[in-house]
Design a protein around this nucleic acid. Structure first.
Lengths: 139, 139
DNA sequence: ATTAAACCTATCTTGTCAATAGGTAAATAG
DNA sequence: CTATTTACCTATTGACAAGATAGGTTTAAT
């Protein structure tokens, strides 16, 4: 299950993609429009800024804006960043300690195929495509 | 992320599919072979029995066995049952209260497509296929 | 009667999600 | 220079679920 973190992150990115590029949008405005708690959204935006998906600007006239064009983001990178991982099972996470049953695991090939499919799905969708699907964003 | 519940359930089903059909396998034996806590496994097996995926038999010579042939189970049904849902986002769960932003949600179509893909993937894999992939099972 | 097993109820620990609270630093406007 | 607006930072909370653990009860075979 994708948590609200990832879903909210996507919504915010789509929201910003629909705004005037180069213009800073304050958090209050985004939270209002998306119906998300401001304080909670702050946490999510923080990580997006840290990972350079967004630029934050303080003070009057400040806010957030994209650092690239919408077609240069993928849903996969946004979700992975917000969620921490897109891995479907613990043993396939990036830093997971290798499972000692790895060799004789009859379900591992399935999980690997699944993970590849999930990855390809989300990394094959750009923010521009999502923004084109509607005006507002949920979930 | 699929939790251990779903993963363990699958492993147990594969384990039983590799055993002599019609023969009852005690929980202790399965837990031992799979390296899973007996007590925790008990909880998982309980739901599999309730949903008729397994037959439990008490007393000496008792244990668990499949109720159908391995090719008549799909990974999807086992996972969905153990996990409670396979839905990737909360708003797509079976009994979810309808989201009021549903109409103007630009990400919903993506989630719906994703869910369909996930469903088709897991429901397209039979227990017989999994059991054929290896001898033992993990994760 | 004894033993092997499933079944049942309750409890525990740990961790994460989702959110809240309250402050600090930077940029602009007047 | 002061006030305002904004992002940024640290800490805490409450609810809930994951992942077990403990101990007792019932059923079936020997």
């Amino acid at each position: 299950m994708i948590s609200t973190k990832g879903r909210y992150a996507l919504r915010v990115m789509v929201d910003l993609a629909s705004q005037d590029a180069g213009h800073f949008v304050p958090l209050d405005e985004i939270a209002e429009r998306q119906g998300i708690s401001k304080k909670y959204l702050e946490i999510i935006l923080k990580t997006l800024v840290e990972k350079k998906l967004l630029k934050g600007m303080r003070g009057k006239g400040g806010g957030y804006r994209l650092t690239r064009r919408p077609e240069e983001y993928t849903a996969g990178e946004i979700l992975e960043l917000a969620e921490g991982t897109l891995a479907s099972v613990a043993c396939l996470r990036a830093g997971a300690e290798p499972c000692e049953r790895r060799e004789r695991c009859s379900t591992l090939p399935m999980w690997e195929r699944f993970d590849r499919m999930v990855h390809d799905f989300f990394y094959g969708i750009t923010l521009a495509e999502l923004a084109a699907e509607g005006t507002d964003a949920v979930p």
